[in-house]
Amino acid sequence: MTGLSPSPYGGQVPVLRIGDVLLVTLQGDLHDGTAEQLQQDVSEAAADSRVNGVVIDLSGVEIVDSFLGRVLADIAAKTRLLAAETVVAGMRPAVAITLVELGLTLPGLRTALSTEEALRLLGGASISPRYGRTRQESP
């Protein structure tokens, strides 16, 4: 349970709540204990009726193993049961390549280029799209 290097989270990953979305920012190594705690925290927070989405920001993660892949899939499965959607944001190229080589393509997971994009994805129509007007709206 205890790794050689100290976890950057002090045993807990912060789960922030922005409106009806939960934001989890992962950085560096994720230890077994921390991951377990995180899954529990997210499930509890998602059980709150007003949450309809979870964004996991991976832009600070540079090394990945099959364990992290499983953690992501688990969180997605759990939140889906609680009627919320999980979006993984900002995955780095090296991490993506490693996951694919490991055979973890995470088919049930939604992805986004950045946290901003992920929030937009979950917000749906409430936030105006970047490429504003369609042809029908133009004069």
């Binding site: 780095r92 190229p93 992805t111």
Partner: peptide
């Protein structure tokens, strides 16, 4: 398919 899967993981 690998390339497509990796791009999808990144959100593209």
């Amino acid at each position: 398919m690998k390339t497509v899967a990796a791009a999808r993981l990144m959100g593209a």
